[in-house]
């Protein structure tokens, strides 16, 4: 009996393991589609060279509590790059944010920040979102170019989903953005512990973006990156010749 159970379990384990070696975990869930978040601007092609986020704008998942656009860590660190030319949506002083979902998790809260200021928070008390979700929020005294950070806090996990939205907050709704330069304070940088910069060399690590040509060491050997990617556990250089060439 025990053997009969063990074999299918092993089969499953083997398949699942090989699956994870080969494929990025599809941790799918949600993001702000309008005004377009940074990941939406990547997926729509409005901003180029975003990396893998174009295939899964819904996957910016990280432990709760981060103030970074990627939720911390090194995955999707491109979203923290304020030097990238993120288009800012022209909006009035009250803005409606719309979400897209690939899985509708039980929700504790939705939070919206500019800088360290919490603009609004909605407590869903563990309910699942419906077909759509929209929040309409006052921008308070914030004007001009600002980066808003939204956090979708999941009720039954330790994680949240993060979306940053670049806004040009003006007076009259559809009016074009002021041509005067934005306030001298540089656009609110979401408080940064700059993401650990992608190591161009050193020892291979998971959850790290590697550019083509990066050289790492692993298990005493040295490898050169053949395809830009963000590493995952199981993607150790000797396991994935498609990504790493032994030098």
């Amino acid at each position: 009996m025990r053997r009969r159970i063990a074999l299918p379990l092993l089969t499953v384990a083997a398949v699942v393991t090989s699956f994870f070696v080969a494929v990025a975990p599809a941790s799918a869930h949600g993001y702000i589609s309008s005004p377009p978040s940074r990941q939406a601007n990547c997926a729509s092609g409005a901003v180029a060279n975003c990396g893998d986020i174009i295939y899964e704008p819904q996957s910016v998942e990280a432990p709760k509590g981060s103030m970074q656009c990627n939720g911390g860590g090194t995955r999707f660190a491109v979203l923290n790059d304020n030097g990238k030319n993120w288009p800012a949506a022209s909006v009035g002083t009250t803005v409606t944010f719309n979400w897209v979902f690939t899985a509708r998790h039980a929700t504790s809260t939705w939070e919206y920040f500019i800088g360290n200021t919490l603009l609004a928070s909605f407590n869903d008390g563990g309910a699942q979102p419906g077909a759509t979700k929209a929040h309409t929020i006052s921008m308070g005294a914030f004007r001009g170019r600002q980066t808003l950070l939204a956090r979708w806090n999941i009720a039954d996990t330790a994680n949240a989903f993060y979306s940053c939205v670049d806004l040009n907050i003006g007076g009259g709704g559809g009016t074009p953005p002021p041509t005067t330069p934005p306030p001298t304070n540089p656009p609110t940088t979401p408080p940064t512990n700059p993401p650990t910069s992608p190591p161009a060399g050193g020892t291979w690590a998971a959850y790290t973006s590697y550019a083509v040509g990066s050289v790492v060491t692993y298990g005493g050997a040295s490898y050169r990156c053949r395809q830009a990617h963000t590493s995952l556990p199981g993607w150790e250089p000797p396991n994935v010749p498609a990504l790493w060439e032994r030098t």
Binding site: A26, A28, Q58, F101, T102, A131
Partner: peptide
């Protein structure tokens, strides 16, 4: 909104 979420999946 529904189609976007679905196509991502």
């Amino acid at each position: 909104s529904l189609l976007l979420g679905h196509l991502h999946n």
